[in-house]
Simulated assay, not measured.
Amino acid sequence: MDVRLFTLAEANALLPELKIQLARLQALVRELEHRLEALHLKKKEYRKRKHAGSGGRPEYGTEDPFFLDESRIEFLRMEAELIIGNFKRNGVLLKSVFPGLLDFPSVVDGKQVLICWKEGEERATCYHGWHDGYQGRRPHPDA
């Protein structure tokens, strides 16, 4: 698989759209977590009621009480995967959702590096080696 290489200008040109996608992904993840927690509590309460009442076996033909909740969760998961896939298709590495952390493969001084951007920064201005991580950030020579 070929890795797309970015200049600092190309990475920064993509950032406005990527920030929108990241914000949408963060909202989806929060909603997913909320819905999963609510579903877990709903199932726990349902098991308590079933155990106390009818012996725990649903009757034939009884509607699944969790179908709608589980379907919404699955739809949200698919939407999140689509957004994550958009980052990949653009050649951008999504390193963290919270806080947002993006890496853009690049070349500086003849070495393959990653231009990095962290949520809250106006634009990308630093880079690090592929194995250095965020802690190894250095100012980009074109910044």
Rank of each mutant, 00 (worst) to 15 (best):
residue 12 N to C: 09
residue 106 S to N: 04
residue 117 W to G: 02
residue 45 E to K: 15
residue 17 E to A: 02
residue 127 Y to M: 05
residue 31 E to D: 15
residue 103 D to V: 04
residue 49 R to T: 11
residue 33 E to C: 00
residue 119 E to T: 03
residue 7 T to C: 05
residue 12 N to V: 10
residue 94 L to P: 01
residue 6 F to R: 08
residue 99 P to L: 03
residue 141 P to R: 05
residue 6 F to G: 08
residue 62 T to P: 02
residue 121 E to K: 05
residue 43 K to Q: 11
residue 90 N to Y: 09
residue 46 Y to F: 12
residue 34 H to N: 14
residue 126 C to D: 15
residue 32 L to V: 02
residue 34 H to C: 08
residue 60 Y to N: 10
residue 8 L to Y: 10
residue 41 L to N: 05
residue 132 D to W: 12
residue 13 A to K: 13
residue 140 H to Y: 04
residue 49 R to N: 03
residue 77 R to T: 05
residue 77 R to I: 02
residue 64 D to Y: 04
residue 109 D to C: 09
residue 29 V to C: 04
residue 57 R to K: 13
residue 51 H to F: 15
residue 79 E to V: 06
residue 115 I to V: 07
residue 121 E to N: 11
residue 75 F to C: 15
residue 98 F to V: 11
residue 109 D to M: 11
residue 28 L to P: 06
residue 92 V to N: 04
residue 130 W to T: 15
residue 89 R to K: 09
residue 69 D to I: 02
residue 25 L to A: 08
residue 71 S to R: 15
residue 66 F to W: 01
residue 116 C to Q: 07
residue 66 F to T: 05
residue 132 D to R: 03
residue 53 G to F: 11
residue 51 H to A: 15
residue 5 L to Q: 09
residue 138 R to S: 13
residue 95 K to V: 06
residue 70 E to A: 12
residue 112 Q to Y: 12
residue 82 L to S: 14
residue 88 K to Q: 13
residue 83 I to D: 10
residue 86 N to G: 15
residue 72 R to D: 14
residue 86 N to K: 10
residue 39 L to V: 03
residue 87 F to A: 03
residue 78 M to E: 13
residue 48 K to F: 06
residue 138 R to W: 00
residue 44 K to F: 07
residue 129 G to H: 08
residue 106 S to D: 06
residue 112 Q to E: 13
residue 86 N to M: 11
residue 56 G to L: 06
residue 132 D to Q: 12
residue 12 N to H: 05
residue 4 R to S: 08
residue 130 W to Q: 13
residue 93 L to F: 13
residue 123 R to D: 00
residue 111 K to S: 12
residue 67 F to S: 09
residue 89 R to A: 10
residue 84 I to F: 07
residue 24 R to E: 11
residue 27 A to N: 10
residue 69 D to M: 13
residue 5 L to P: 00
residue 105 P to Q: 02
residue 74 E to D: 13
residue 92 V to A: 04
residue 99 P to E: 02
residue 117 W to F: 00
residue 54 S to V: 03
residue 88 K to G: 00
residue 4 R to P: 02
residue 29 V to E: 15
residue 77 R to G: 02
residue 92 V to G: 05
